[in-house]
Write a protein that binds this DNA or RNA. Structure first.
Lengths: 120, 120
DNA sequence: CGATTGGTCAACCGCTGGGTTGAATACGGC
DNA sequence: GCCGTATTCAACCCAGCGGTTGACCAATCG
């Protein structure tokens, strides 16, 4: 899995089980078994999910005797938030602009608008 | 593809090509061919990508003669943003709390903390 | 030391995702 | 009505994902 960071984060969170794990980890660190408990899957499956989350930078794992406590890393969320906010704002701005245009020229809507239609 | 909305949105954006398309659409609506131009894939592949984005509620498609202009829908972004913000805030709050704890009791860190380790 | 607990590695399996090509559909122009 | 343009549908291919089981490490307990 050698994808770009953003793809890794998004695809890590595209799985509901992994999102649930993140939700659980937001409350506090947990061991693999603790994380596995609520889910009806093998420990190995959970281990795989954790690897995905770790590769995405969403969690980190340390060591405590036999246990491997999992810790949620909040910073990576920013990567997503920034990307999302960027395009959302642009889209919303466009929407408001269009709104203005429609208000200022209400007759230009039904018939074929002049020539070309590529630019904006 | 009958997954929950959040999974659909995250997994739609897990693909770099689709993110690029969203970026392009943030500038303004575009036809399928226009969207396809920058990418080195077939028109059919682009059509599939658009279907994924549409199923996720990220874009909508109308009709203009033979063309099917694609429009970015900003609202769905909120779904993600809300989810992300929720857990990020919790994780950050925990982090600050831990910080406080560590500051107030600097000796309790290295040796095995009392018994049990499940709760928090 | 051997046994137990906690977790990972490896191989495999069925399904889906992203890509292809080729045929079909939906319009507008003539 | 026919042709070209814009897009989608259908079938197929291959890689990767999420799941399994079985074997394997790591560390603590007796």
């Amino acid at each position: 899995m050698v994808a770009d960071p953003l793809s890794r984060v998004f695809s890590a969170l595209a799985d509901p089980t992994r999102r649930d794990m993140v939700a659980r980890l937001a409350i506090g660190d947990a061991t693999v078994s603790e994380l596995a408990a609520p889910f009806d899957v093998s420990l190995q499956a959970v281990s795989k999910h954790l690897k995905v989350l770790e590769d995405a930078g969403l969690v980190s794992r340390s060591r405590d005797a036999q246990r491997r406590p999992v810790h949620l890393e909040a910073e990576v969320f920013d990567l997503m938030t920034k990307w999302i906010e960027r395009y959302r704002r642009r889209a919303e701005a466009r929407y408001r602009r269009l709104d203005d245009v429609l208000r200022s020229m209400p007759e230009e809507s039904a018939p074929p608008p002049p020539p070309e239609g590529t630019a904006s």
